[in-house]
Design a protein around this nucleic acid. Structure first.
Lengths: 344, 344
DNA sequence: CTGAAAGCGCTAACAG
DNA sequence: CTGTTAGCGCTTTCAG
């Protein structure tokens, strides 16, 4: 390993000068600088970031907290897309990504502790359970934190326009003629509340009275939970003409469950998803859904995080990223005997 | 931030003793040790890994190189599952993960340089293009490297049993009665060669003469490439009765393309995929495929990498991880007029 | 068993 | 413009 001292020796100057030359300081003669840079390259010098971090208090490392309850973790398409965007944007700015976790090396350790060990410069959080004590602790710490899809006074947030998303989807269903719509909602967390709000808003605007049976509890991404939700709904005397699922995965499991019960989609029941991930496009017919702009979400989060850490500050600004309705083939106008139960 | 000096002061001992106590050295009085540990906890001490790394030359960081040509990167289900497993296993052993990339911060930088800046302890590579100069350079460096699904004299490898996988899939098709089978293969890289080998082996064993038109060039995961492959095949006078696609995504795009051309799957053409990712289960009927044990692959890679770096050595042992045939509904015995072209 | 001191590689005043 | 020097926080001889 070649150090700045090696370069200093080779150039007949001091390590301080080398350091300055390498870091583009202005107070170094242009010629010496050239000479040093050339020599450094020649000798294959690579700066040691640990050493640098020790004296500058900057690690050029951004922590990323991506866990969800159903621990699909990185394998969830939505999260992996966001992660990819966070990563790309961070790299473009010269930062590396470090996953933050508890239980490192069999030792239990809080998220905050993990960040402190590694002296993470800032953190991006996009996990589902923001109410977790440790997540809260991290948000309240003095490490710059940016969250995705959560609202807290302590941190900056990038929000996907959830209310509008589900509002538009519901509105779309209504415009097709549906009135008996069920929203199978996911884990009871912040985004879910937001979405339920959007759902009710659309109903209200259409003057469709909201009743409790229009909401059915389900879970994000989980096969069984959505099959259960469908089973639950199919027990009713009067079936809805449309079902909105928590997300695209759920919608597809749901469609399969409906079909396995002899219900035709979309002829008997229309279905809508949420997220706009690739698989929605792979099934036939294409899933009607709301596309979240995962790339924007990730990029903005990364950028905001870097902006905060470079100014050594925290704030709680919110940035909202738009969503988009993707009409597919899983919806159609309800059959004429609208309002009546389709035959079982 | 509390340092070992703070603890030393508070305990009335030296920083050296604190360091020893904290690191479980045996040459420190059990009582002082207890006292130090207690105080450390009380004061909220968190070790600074940068500082530690500077003196120990161990960063407890494992680099991960996960890029693929179609740059689906982390969003590819197969890779994200492997990554998840690598990460979990690494964390269990106390290591963090760092993504290795070129072009950090707008500065172009080789993978090796990136590793050296961060003083990565070891690297796991699972990208598709192992022939890349920079990847080769990394493998030939003295950093411990473990690759997934590649064969090189310089590094240890975890191999998915590709030959057997495609062999079994082909064998299965043959056992159903198929003789006109086309293998639409992916990017021309090591694994692809292996798979083609497995394909030919199965044909040979069944005494089905191999002809060039049984191979069609396609690309992993890419929608258009697979649609093109299907289009290509459908131009033939005599259609195959079965098509094997490079992977599950490809198979699904392929099935859609076939259906859009009025071909019934599996009635007219049977289809097989590869990977065994979740979406295969989401379409109807379930995709016939070969499941790769992504979790094992990732875990083994992580473990091997840690074993190497802890012994400060490199070797080139190979570990093979088995695969599993998942029979689905996209295959059936070919129609009776076997060997004849299905009507177009 | 404990501590003094050197050093890991780099940065940042501060003098010169 | 250049160099000296004192850290950053931790580990590790080596005396005591």
């Amino acid at each position: 390993m070649v150090t700045i001292y090696d370069i200093a020796n080779a150039c007949g100057c001091s390590s301080a000068t080398v350091s300055k030359a390498l870091n583009n300081y202005s107070d170094v003669n242009i010629n010496t600088k050239e000479r040093i840079l050339k020599k450094a390259k020649e000798m294959g010098f690579v700066p040691n970031l640990q050493a640098r971090a020790l004296s500058t208090k900057r690690t050029w490392n951004i922590g990323v907290l991506f866990e969800d309850k159903s621990n699909s973790g990185l394998t969830h398409y939505y999260f992996s897309q966001v992660l990819q965007a966070v990563k790309e944007q961070a790299e473009e700015k010269g930062y590396d990504i470090t996953f933050i976790s508890k239980n490192l090396g069999g030792v239990e350790m809080s998220y905050l502790e993990h960040c402190n060990r590694r002296n993470i410069d800032g953190v991006v959080i996009a996990c589902i359970d923001f109410e977790d004590q440790q997540v809260q602790q991290l948000m309240e710490s003095n490490i710059p934190v940016v969250v995705i899809d959560y609202d807290s006074e302590h941190v900056s947030a990038i929000m996907s326009d959830n209310v509008r998303g589900i509002y538009e989807l519901t509105h779309y269903m209504i415009s097709l003629g549906h009135r008996d719509i069920v929203y199978a909602y996911g884990h009871e967390v912040y985004v879910t509340e937001e979405r339920i709000r959007g759902f009710k808003k659309a109903l209200e605007e259409a003057k469709i009275p909201f009743t409790e049976d229009m909401l059915v509890k389900s879970r994000y991404s989980e096969k069984q939970a959505n099959i259960d939700a469908v089973t639950e709904i199919l027990k009713r005397d009067q079936l809805p003409t449309a079902i909105l699922f928590p997300d695209d995965y759920s919608a597809i499991w749901g469609i399969n469950a409906l079909r396995n019960n002899g219900i035709k989609v979309p002829e008997e029941i229309s279905v809508g998803g949420f997220d706009g991930v690739e698989i929605g496009e792979m099934i036939f017919p294409r899933l009607t859904t709301i596309r979240q702009n995962t790339t924007r979400l990730g990029k903005e989060a990364s950028l905001k995080c870097i902006q905060l850490l470079e100014s050594k500050s925290k704030d709680n600004t919110k940035i909202t990223v738009g969503v988009e309705l993707i009409p597919g083939g899983t919806c159609m106008a309800p059959r004429l005997l609208q309002g009546k139960s389709p035959r079982r």
